[in-house]
């Protein structure tokens, strides 16, 4: 891009790549910087969620019977379906990254659509789960009214549902943001912005989506399954 590189070797075609920002020497360096930044961001995400996981473990340590009793009110099947859906979406996302590595924009767009579809199914299942909880008054803190709906849970169920809604809610927000980013990537791919040598935005979207999947891999057994 800049004339400072006039003395670069002749086989170098990076200078002519319109996607190379002027402050990077090569596409490889630009890609590595973007990916390192993404990994650092994912690190902060893991640390943020770890606080909620710790809250769960503390609650479980102090009130094991209450957590077991309250978790019986979560639908194993809804959680299980969502796990399969989210794992599938991670698979299609990984295939999308592979497609663009091979330069196949059409397949990338198909994979993005499939991933978005899975994400939407996840949100719909979540919607039904949440509305059931709302109906039964199984809500956090002072909004907890399940005892008025005929559910007797000993101990501190309002704290359990606080942890439940914070964990799944924050995760759900991440899914929603992921869907928006994938839609954006779908549009950008349609404009021909990505190719076999320039796909780090797709790869970083994938990394983000896989992290959302990773968090669910731990949320699902802890909240829905563990006895």
């Amino acid at each position: 891009m800049s004339n400072e590189h006039a003395h670069a070797p002749a086989h170098d075609d990076d200078e002519h790549n319109p996607h190379l920002a002027h402050h990077f020497d090569t596409m490889g360096q630009q890609t590595a910087s973007a990916k390192l930044g993404m990994w650092l961001f994912l690190a902060t995400e893991i640390l943020m969620f770890s606080g909620l996981f710790l809250a769960y473990f503390i609650l479980r340590m102090f009130y094991p019977e209450m957590v077991l009793e309250a978790h019986e009110h979560l639908s194993k099947w809804a959680g299980g379906i969502n796990t399969v859906v989210l794992l599938t979406s991670s698979y299609t996302m990984a295939l999308g990254v592979r497609s663009i590595q091979l330069g196949d924009v059409k397949k990338l767009r198909l994979m993005l659509v499939l991933t978005i579809l899975c994400g939407c199914i996840f949100m719909v299942v979540k919607y039904f789960e949440y509305s059931a909880k709302f109906q039964h008054g199984m809500l956090p803190g002072k909004y907890y009214t399940a005892h008025l709906h005929g559910y007797e849970i000993d101990g501190l169920p309002h704290i359990f549902f606080g942890v439940y809604f914070m964990m799944t809610g924050l995760h759900g927000i991440h899914v929603a943001i992921g869907l928006a980013i994938m839609l954006w990537m779908f549009v950008r791919a349609g404009r021909g912005e990505f190719g076999a040598k320039n796909y780090v935005a797709i790869e970083n979207t994938g990394l983000y989506w896989h992290l959302v999947d990773l968090i669910w891999i731990f949320l699902f057994p802890l909240l829905y399954l563990v006895k």
Partner: peptide
Amino acid sequence: MAKVFLNGQPVEHPHEVHEHISPMSTYN
């Protein structure tokens, strides 16, 4: 030519991209 650095390390052949592309069988 100017020296290229990746994560603080000088890179010998900065213009060669070594992206690993996994086969479909791995993902499956």
